[in-house]
Amino acid sequence: MPQLNRNRKIWVYLPPDYATSNRSYPVLYMHDAQNLFDDATSFSGEWQVDESLNRLFEEGDNGIIVIAIENGGADRLAEMTPWSNPSYGGGDGEAYVDFIVQNLKPYVDANLRTLADQPHTGIMGSSLGGLISLYAIIRYQEVFGKAGILSPSLWFTDDIYNFVTSTGKQADVRIAFVAGEQESSDMVPDMQAMYNTLRNVGFSADELSFATDADGQHSEWYWRREFPPTYQWLFQTSTVLEGSVQLRGLRYWPNPSVDTLYLEGLPASNSAWQARFYDGLGRLAKSTVVQNDQISLRDLISGHYYLVLHNENDQWAVIHLQKVE
C-alpha cells in the first residue's frame, strides 16, 4: 500500500468456471481476508465465502470474483477508520480506500477478466470493515455500485454521518445493512440512523436494504450465515434484469398495502405479467402472476419487499412495497 508504505497479502477467489470459460465477472472487494476462507487463519471462525459462492454457482448463480485484503493486525483499526477517535486513535481509512481504488482495482482489472464498471463492482465488510465499506461507497460512488454493511461500527465516529450528509447521492447504488439484535444496544439504532441519513440525502428505498436478526451476534458465525443472502441481494436481481427495458409511468397503490396491490399502466402482453416478491436480503418470498391489474398479498407476512414485475418482452419494473396487517 504505497499510500501508507505498508504491504498486505491479497486473497483471490475465482468462480468455478473461470479457467474453462472466457466470461468476465463482477468483483467484490472484501476486508479481513484471514477470516473469509480458512479456519486456520481466522480470528474466531471463517465466513466460508468460497464454499458459499461455489454452492450458489451450482444453484445457478453467474459467479463473482472476490478480492480480499488481509487486515494489518495492529494496524487494522487505523486502516479501517477514516477519522480518529479520541479514545482509540485511527484515521488511516482514507489512504486505505485510496489504495483499493487507485492501486488494487486497476491491477485486478488488468490481470483478471472482470466487469470493471460501477454496477458490477462491490465492497463488503463487517464491524470496522462495515464502517470502511460504507465510507468507500459514499466517497467513490463512481467506482462502487454495491456495498454490504454488516454490523457496522458506526459508534466509532459521528463524522461518518456528516460525511454522508455533505457528500450526498451522486450515483445509483445498492447498500445492504445487516445487524443482529444481540449485538451492542447501539448497533441497530445507529444503523437505523444511518439508513435515515442516506434516505434524507436522496438515496431511494429501492437502493437500500435494512435487515436485523433476533439471534444475530457480533461474530463470524453470524456474518458467515448472512453473507450469501446479502451477496444475492446486492448482485442477483440486477443480473436477472440486465438488458431488460424498464417501464415508465407505472402507478401502484396503496403502499403500504394490506391484502391487494392495484396497478395501472402495465403494457399489454401476450403472456401474463410475472410478479416476484423478494425480502430485504434478496430471498424469494412469493411468486405469482398479475390478474386484472391486481396482485393478492394475503399470503405474505408483514414486512418490506421488492416486487419485480417482468414479462416475456423483457419489460420490467421494481417496486419497493410494505405489507401490513
Rank of each mutant, 00 (worst) to 15 (best):
A285T: 08
H120E: 07
N62T: 14
Y18K: 11
Q118G: 05
V97M: 00
E70V: 05
D314N: 15
I123Q: 02
S44E: 12
L14Y: 06
G303L: 12
A275G: 06
G93E: 00
E220N: 10
Y222K: 07
T212S: 15
P82I: 04
L112E: 05
R6N: 08
A136C: 02
H120L: 02
L56H: 03
D117P: 05
G265M: 07
F156Q: 02
G168Q: 05
R55V: 06
F57Q: 12
D17I: 12
Y13V: 11
V188K: 04
S133V: 00
Q141R: 04
V12C: 09
Y222M: 08
A171I: 01
N255Q: 06
N292P: 03
N103L: 11
P16F: 05
A193L: 11
S296C: 12
L250P: 10
S269T: 14
G145D: 01
H304C: 07
F227V: 02
L77A: 10
R6S: 09
L247R: 06
R199N: 14
V108I: 15
D159C: 03
S133E: 00
P229K: 07
A317H: 15
F57L: 12
D213A: 14
W155G: 10
P267I: 08
I100P: 00
G303V: 12
E264A: 12
S42Q: 06
Q294F: 01
E325V: 06
D17Q: 11
F156Y: 15
D172E: 14
Q182V: 11
F277Q: 05
L104C: 03
I100F: 00
D279W: 08
T20M: 02
P82R: 02
R55N: 13
D75T: 11
Q192E: 15
Y262M: 10
